[in-house]
Each structure stands twice: as C-alpha cells, then as structure tokens.
C-alpha cells in the first residue's frame, strides 16, 4: 500500500472515530441515546393494560409531564394535547395494531412504535407554538391522515 494511501485511510478512519466518540459520549455519558426502551406489552390487550388503560397527559413533577399515548391506524389517543412552555415531556407510547412511527416535526422526537413494545422518548419544549405530531411509518390506506398536535403555551 502506498504511503499516501495509508495517510488517507488513517485520516478518514480518524474522522469516523471522532464521529463515533462524539455520539458515543452523548449516548453513554449524557443520556442522549436514541429511543430504546425495553418494556413489553401484549399488543392485543393494550386497552386493558396499565398505563394504557388510561391514556392522557399527566403532571409528574415541577413542569414535568408524562404523555401516555396509544397509536392505531389512523389516530393518536389522546390527541391535540397541551403543555406549558418549558415543560419536560416524556411520551410513553405503544401501538394497538401495526408498526407506527412517532415524529414531532422540527424536533428530535422520532421513534418507532412496534406492536408488543412500549417506547419512551423525552423532549423539553422551550418554544411556544403548535407542533405537528405525525406517523412516519406507513400503516395503511389513510396513513397520510394520521396526525395530531401538541400545543405549547
């Protein structure tokens, strides 16, 4: 191998290692890893299983909220939710039927919600406004209508 090729591979592999170091540090030292919750649930008994037997928005601390939400083709429950400005919101999600994707446009909230699994993802909403929540995994004929909002005021 030519010396210059070795130089190139060292530099470029070094760049990849730096990328991995940055995302690895954020993941393991700062708790910023991608949504990876491991709780499970019977996908055919979602409505009878806590906490999804009572979906809703719950205040759990000083400006901290938990949103227990079920997804199904083609709706969210609860929908059109409201939280105060600066609220730290944890979404607890599951699906009653097929795979859905939970995305809030313009934020880092993006998580797959697969049947049998409970997914969790958190976000602090500092900017007031009406955020668009949408399903970003194809789930059937009216997939494009599956959306709701979260209002921050």
């Amino acid at each position: 191998m030519h010396r210059l090729e070795e130089t190139w591979l060292t530099v470029s592999a070094g760049i990849l290692i730096i990328f991995m170091f940055i995302v690895g540090y954020q993941t393991f030292a700062m708790g910023m890893g991608p949504p990876s919750n491991k709780e499970t649930i019977d996908p055919q008994k979602v409505e009878e299983t806590a906490p999804f037997d009572h979906p809703g928005v719950f205040k759990v601390g000083e400006n901290k909220y938990e949103v227990v939400m079920t997804m199904e083709a083609f709706s969210f429950n609860p929908d059109d939710i409201t939280v105060p400005k600066g609220a730290e919101v944890e979404f607890v999600l599951t699906t009653k039927d097929v795979v859905h994707g939970f995305q809030v446009a313009g934020t880092n909230i993006n998580a797959m919600v697969t049947p049998g699994h409970i997914q969790r993802i958190s976000q602090t909403f500092d900017e007031p406004g009406e955020y668009l929540i949408l399903c970003n995994e194809y789930c059937g004929v009216a997939h494009q209508l599956m959306s709701t909002t979260i209002t921050v005021n």
């Binding site: 210059l4 130089t7 190139w8 530099v11 470029s12 760049i15 990328f19």
Partner: peptide
C-alpha cells in the same frame, strides 16, 4: 499523486461538512 490527495481531501470535506 497530488491531485489524488486533493480529491480525497474534498471527499473528507464533504463528509465532515454534511455530518
């Protein structure tokens, strides 16, 4: 091989800028 090094340097720049 100067041109090659400039070219791969461009590749590295695209990778870094996009990332």
């Amino acid at each position: 091989m100067k041109g090659t090094m400039v070219s791969v340097g461009f590749v590295a720049a695209v990778i870094v800028v996009m990332w």
